[in-house]
Amino acid sequence: MLENTATSKLAPETELSPQQKKLTQQALTFCAEHLASQQPGVFVIKGAAGTGKSVVLSALMATLQQARTAAQSPFYQTNNYLLVNHPEMLKTYKQIAADQPNLRKKDFMKPTPFINQMAKQATTADIVLVDEAHLLLTKSDRYNRFNQENQLTEICNHSRIVILVFDEHQVLKMKSYWNQTKLMALLAKRSYKIVQLDQQFRVHANSATQHWLTALGTKGQLLPRPADSTFDLRIFADASQMYQQLRHRDHEFGLSRLVATADFPYKLDGQTYYVIAPSFKLPWDKNMDPNITWAERPETLNEVGSIYTIQGFDLNYVAVILGPSVTYDPTAQRLKLLPDNYQDHEAFKRRADLTEPQAWQAKQQIILNSINVLLQRGRYGLYLYATDPQLRAKLLTL
């Protein structure tokens, strides 16, 4: 079924799959047991893009907030929050809260205001859910008014139980640089449980196509393009032609958007900046509406979205422009990533705890992660164009 909104999956009434229902019950049991024993705990939900991590988290929040009014419930009168660093996702959760009697907008926050509020009040939350935990800061950040060293550590310090969703292949900035080792070092100090979601719900494609997307987005591998009657996967030699095809899809089915890697200049100074390719020029997203997400506004069909406006959302069709930082290594027959060409300089801010080789590797991983995020947005189709001539030629031969 084609989606009318990019966020409908997060509504509390969304039907969960058997795997999601089982995981939700595991999380509720974990919370009840740890509240009863007064033992702090962390419940980690892992899974790739599109496996329904946020869907489970939204369902959990709705269940907890309804149960907090039932005297016989283990969650009676608990003080619970859902946190997310992604501003577009926060809009979505607040929209949902406005329409649900058991949800309150004030229970949905960004991590730093939550941390500062708990510290100022010298209080502890009962259960804190963290969406997109791979976006949590792992170093201080004056711009975000976070003065400590790790947001997840601080959230745990101010919570009895933390439930978080995590995918290391969606880390997008050095200041929120996570890997499995860093996560496990933090969990080792607490009682924890890790569960995995592995069923793909967003991309309606056969297993060969899903493998093709995963190999490209997580390993940079260029595999032969599979035949798939259920998913419209196309490679384009011309960005303008790709955009016109996307406009047709939007006219037919709605919720079709163009996105690009952060390889084209952009500043938060109120000016208009463009994504440019031969015979193609469109402005970057401006994200001017404080209440409606970028993907759901009709006029954004005339803009180019970024990882920061589209991460976590579903589209019916997505067209992706791979910019100058994404090239091709003919010897290794895989993507070659060039951090010096990446224009999101904020993403690459130096950190003292990483050596130069480690930092260079982290930058390449961030670029690859951004590609992975973009590739996994479309439910029914992906259109792909590369600005690098050698990569474009290789893609067209697959």
Rank of each mutant, 00 (worst) to 15 (best):
F253K: 05
T230P: 00
A262M: 11
Y273T: 02
L197W: 03
L268W: 05
M184T: 14
H204G: 00
P265N: 05
D228Q: 07
Y273M: 04
T214W: 06
K219Y: 08
T181M: 09
N206R: 08
D232H: 07
L186S: 05
S256W: 01
T261S: 14
D198H: 05
F264R: 00
Y243D: 09
Y177V: 07
R257P: 01
A262Q: 07
D228M: 01
Y243W: 14
W212A: 08
Y274W: 14
K189S: 13
A185F: 11
Q271Y: 03
R257Y: 12
D198S: 07
D198W: 01
K219R: 11
P265L: 03
L223E: 12
Y243C: 14
R225H: 01
E252N: 11
S229W: 00
A188D: 12
N179S: 03
D269K: 06
A208I: 00
E252R: 09
A227S: 09
G270C: 09
A260Q: 13
H211C: 09
R190D: 04
P224W: 03
R234Y: 04
Y243K: 15
S207L: 05
K182F: 04
M184D: 15
M184I: 12
L213A: 06
Q210H: 03
M242P: 07
T261R: 03
F253C: 12
T261V: 09
A277F: 02
R202H: 06
Q271R: 12
L183V: 13
D232G: 01
T261C: 10
S229P: 02
N206T: 07
S176H: 04
S229F: 09
D250H: 15
A260T: 10
A227Y: 13
R190A: 12
S256K: 07
A188T: 06
Q210L: 10
D250E: 14
P224T: 01
R249L: 15
A208N: 07
P226G: 09
T261M: 10
K189M: 05
T218M: 02
R257E: 03
L186P: 10
Y274E: 02
L233A: 11
P265W: 05
P265G: 00
K281G: 01
Q271F: 04
P226M: 10
H204L: 11
A215T: 06
Q196V: 04
I194L: 11
F236K: 01
P224D: 08
K193A: 12
S207P: 00
M184N: 15
L233H: 13
Q271A: 08
L246E: 02
H204K: 13
Y243A: 08
Y243L: 12
T214S: 10
W178T: 04
S176A: 08
A227G: 03
A208G: 02
D269I: 05
K193H: 10
A205W: 02
M242Q: 13
Q200E: 08
A262H: 02
T230H: 14
